[in-house]
């Protein structure tokens, strides 16, 4: 049959259908794009978090080391102060013991160890020793033994051994 109108090519989709399909495509693309963007952001956040955590652990270890150094300095300071105190105590102890010696008595030897003091000296009489030197020695030491040897001039050489219990000994 003959037609007066020329045949028009029939499109696969009508105009409005095409518009809808483009709209679908753009919408899906936007949503997927948005999701991909978020996933990428999450990936970089995750990567940065790992890096930060590593740095935090490293710093924490450094802090531990610094604290160890700090403790060591405090230990050294304590030791230094203790030693100074001990030196001062030793000095005072020796000074006090030597100050105990009364004028009439002269010393030959003064041997001081941690728990023992041995004194060699000369006294005009036993009484001078017994009255002036023995009482302070007895008040300091737990055990005091004295040995006298008479000299040709009538004076006495003496040896005084004074001990304290090991528990009370000076450290």
């Amino acid at each position: 049959m003959y037609s007066f109108t020329k045949p028009k090519p029939k499109p696969l989709f009508k105009e409005d259908t095409k518009l809808w399909l483009i709209f679908y495509f753009i919408s899906i693309l936007l949503f997927v794009g948005f999701s991909v963007f978020l996933l990428l952001k999450a990936y970089f956040y995750n990567k940065d978090t790992q890096q930060i955590n590593k740095e935090t652990i490293y710093l924490k270890q450094k802090i531990l080391k610094l604290n160890t150094q700090k403790e060591l300095i405090f230990l050294q300071k304590t030791l230094y102060e203790n030693i100074q105190i001990k030196n001062s105590v030793i000095k005072t102890s020796i000074k006090n013991l030597l100050d105990l010696i009364p004028d009439p008595i002269t010393l030959d030897k003064f041997l001081l160890s941690q728990n023992k003091l041995i004194i060699y000296g000369i006294t005009p009489t036993k009484d001078v020793y017994n009255m002036l030197m023995l009482p302070p020695l007895e008040s300091i030491f737990e055990k005091t033994q004295t040995y006298f040897y008479q000299l040709p001039n009538g004076w006495y050489k003496f040896k005084s051994i004074n001990t304290i219990k090991a528990d009370n000994a000076y450290n």
Binding site: I83, I90, K91, I94, L107, K109, F110, L111, L112, Q114
Partner: peptide, 8 residues
């Protein structure tokens, strides 16, 4: 630290 014995 000065320490024992002290012998004079």
């Amino acid at each position: 630290r000065v320490y024992f014995p002290f012998n004079f």
